[in-house]
Design a protein around this nucleic acid. Structure first.
Length: 681
DNA sequence: GTAACTGTTTATGAAG
DNA sequence: CTTCATAAACAGTTAC
């Protein structure tokens, strides 16, 4: 019987329990608080000390409460770093209960300290392979290793440990590996080597199956894209630029505060795998390492909540500024065109598996950036589009139609139900399609054709063209993050074969093709939908804009212009913190994507931004992260207190401070609530 | 021809 | 229910 591994710490979501109201520490800490009143009005920005609300709750000095810019009944509470969180939560809970459904009953708690940790600097720091210097004072403090020696100085602690399994998921480690290279690509073997070098556990302890897991993850996750070199012999694994947060090993290490009382908090014991014989004598050192390590990786679908604070109230009176992309971020497809009209998507009926009538299908061509490498996805697309190729024709007949009938259409229906926040699993894992059986049947009919796809590699230099003139795909950026990788948008296929036909070519190992994949499958049971591939990311969102698509809002704290905002609706479940917070909210999955949504000018602008006005564009690398965002944005952990459900959840927040250049008044630090609130763990 | 490697996919169990 | 790790089957490619 196999034993399931411990989940990586960094990938964990946890729902924090509400502290007990009669916790022993409460009174002691509360005694230090200044009596303050809870604000109740929907003022845009205020300090507790300025409030006149008669609410009896007491808050410590320095606490700030602002209304969430887009979420009704939600307030953002900036808490001094060393405040008693428990008391604050109690007070907020009381306040929320007092307010009921008509007032603020959900609170996003963020920590306040003097040293904001800019994502931009972090990203720029870590996206540069050659720049391993830790500008973060914490990192510098915690890294006694020479950064010039180790590619990731902080990783040395892991190098020292042969017995501990790194607290990172395979997916994270692969990202580390790939992002550690200049070209942001690696061969499989290089990935192996990198992981072995940086995590000796895998070199000395782990079973050989870990490599299988690496391969599995590479294939499984859409963010990993296999590119084939021009000669077609070398496959490089890359991270899709829109999905790449440029995570590096450096980036996820952050030493804890020296005064952190519970070092082990940051790496749960069960996350590690000690080899019994090695465990002796290493526990103490491992604790030290735990102290120094702070896994900061948000999951791909982490609960990234954009919050924007207008620090300069006068800015609120400035004309509305819409989120726009900087020219450099403009997609290859005209965003304006994309945003003009909505692309109507025909929702095809779910066809019977046993249906004999092949559904009309026309492959879709792609638009792609110039790339020295030929995307394997492209290759497949080209192949499918080679209708005149007799070999391909057979494949189309077998796989394409099969896919279209069973899986794509099913996906269509399902997607319609859950759009826009559909995750891959929503589309795929629940599909109980007998396509494999059907495919097997087909294979019996055509025994010469393997179920596994064999595609002709056609190194088409002439790129296909996207033919969705009316496709609006005005991407908010929100939807263009990971969802686009996992979502598929059905549409009425348009034939646009631009790749010249070529005869011959080598057979190639079939590849996954979720991004821009054509309705072909190597394993028929997994649905594939027709998505227009493009070098830009618009093709990820070819569906019509839905009401939910407009929910993303970059508007600042609600104020006089609140009416202009597009608040989240509780009715849509966006504030249903009882379950997975913001699970159903089309939030940014990637901090990078979120940060890139705005140009610096936009950030300086105070007012609302419509998602539809911010067509998303593919950015090649997160090195641009700091370009597209000024220094007044920060990622931080936060807590979501839902007084309606007595739930407390941990989230990742992206905070922008309107009108600030490099710093923020609040000084919201990227502090871990796990550190801040040990009692909540 | 065969082994090793690589890539894709499915299945399963643990943990949350 | 979701996410992740693990195992495994299967197939294509490549080196010997």
């Amino acid at each position: 019987m196999r034993t399931s591994p411990r989940r990586p710490l960094i990938l964990r979501r946890r729902k924090l329990p509400l502290p007990l109201r009669d916790a022993p520490t409460t009174d002691q800490v509360v005694a230090n608080y200044q009596p303050e009143r809870v604000q109740k009005e929907a003022s845009s920005h205020e300090s507790i000390s300025e409030r006149t609300d008669p609410s009896p709750q007491k808050f410590p000095a320095g606490i700030k409460i602002v209304n969430h810019p887009t979420m009704s009944n939600t307030q953002v509470v900036i808490i001094p770093k060393h405040a008693d969180i428990q008391s604050i939560i109690e007070a907020l809970t009381a306040k929320g209960k007092e307010s009921g459904t008509s007032g603020p009953n959900k609170f996003i708690l963020i920590s306040c300290s003097g040293s904001p940790r800019s994502v931009c600097s972090s990203a720029s720091q870590h996206c540069s392979q050659t720049d391993h210097a830790n500008t973060d004072e914490d990192d510098a403090e915690g890294s006694e290793e020479d950064a010039s020696v180790a590619p990731c100085s902080s990783s040395t602690s892991w190098q020292e440990s042969f017995s501990e399994r790194p607290p990172y998921s395979y997916m994270a480690m692969i990202q580390f590996a790939i992002n550690s290279t200049e070209g942001k690509r690696m061969t499989l073997k290089e990935i192996y080597t990198w992981i072995e070098d940086h995590f000796p556990y895998f070199k000395h302890v782990a079973k050989p199956g870990w490599k299988n897991s690496i391969r599995h993850n590479l294939s499984l996750h859409d963010m990993f894209v296999r590119e084939t070199a021009a000669n077609g012999k070398i496959s490089f694994w890359t991270i899709h630029p829109d999905a790449n947060r440029c995570l590096t090993l450096d980036q996820v290490f952050k030493p804890l505060d020296p005064g952190s009382p519970t070092p082990t908090q940051h790496c749960e014991p069960h996350q590690k795998r000690f080899i019994p014989e090695l465990q002796k004598g290493t526990i103490a050192s491992s604790y030290v390492k735990e102290r120094r390590m702070k896994p900061l990786l948000p999951r791909v679908s982490s609960y990234l909540v954009p919050i924007q604070f207008p620090l300069n109230p006068s800015l609120l009176l400035q004309p509305s500024t819409k989120v726009t992309q900087s020219p450099s971020q403009e997609p290859s497809i005209s965003s304006a065109e994309l945003g003009k009209s909505s692309k109507r998507v025909r929702i095809a009926p779910k066809a019977s598996v046993t249906g004999d009538e092949p559904l009309p299908f026309q492959p879709v061509a792609f638009v792609r950036d110039e790339d020295p490498f030929i995307s394997v996805k492209q290759e497949e697309a080209f192949n499918v589009m080679n209708e005149n190729d007799p070999f391909i024709a057979v494949k189309q007949e077998e796989e394409v139609f099969t896919t279209m009938r069973e899986e794509t259409f099913f996906t269509t229906v399902k997607q319609e139900e859950t759009f826009p926040n559909i995750e891959e699993e929503d589309l795929f894992t629940t599909v109980e399609s007998p396509t494999r059986k059907l495919a097997d049947t087909l294979l019996e009919k055509h025994p010469s054709i393997s179920r596994r796809k064999q595609r002709l590699i056609l190194p088409c230099l002439e790129e296909p063209v996207l033919v969705f003139p009316e496709c609006n795909n005005s991407d908010s950026g929100l939807a263009s993050d990971f969802s686009f990788l996992q979502q598929t948008q059905p549409f009425e296929p348009v034939l646009a074969v631009c790749c010249p036909q070529e005869e011959g070519g080598a057979f190639k190992t079939p590849i996954k093709h979720k991004i821009g994949k054509l309705p072909t499958l190597s394993t028929p049971s997994k649905p594939v939908s027709t998505v227009s591939q493009a070098g830009s990311s618009e093709f990820y969102r070819t569906g019509p804009p839905t009401r939910e698509e407009s929910l993303l809002d970059f508007s600042p704290v609600q104020g006089p212009q609140e009416s202009m905002l597009t608040p989240f609706k509780d009715s849509l479940g966006f504030l249903g913190f009882t379950g997975t917070p913001f699970k159903d909210t089309p939030l940014f999955d990637s901090p990078r994507e979120l940060l890139n949504t705005k140009s610096p000018e936009v950030i300086s602008g105070p007012l609302t931004s419509s998602p539809t006005s911010a067509p998303y564009s593919a950015k090649p690398c997160s090195k641009e992260l700091h370009v597209g965002s000024s220094g007044n944005r920060s990622l931080t952990e936060g807590l979501v207190l839902d007084t309606m459900n007595d739930s407390l959840s941990k989230i990742l927040l992206d905070i922008s401070f309107t009108g600030l250049e490099d710093d923020d008044e609040f000084g919201v630090d990227n502090v871990s609530w796990s550190q801040l609130i040990p009692e909540l763990r």
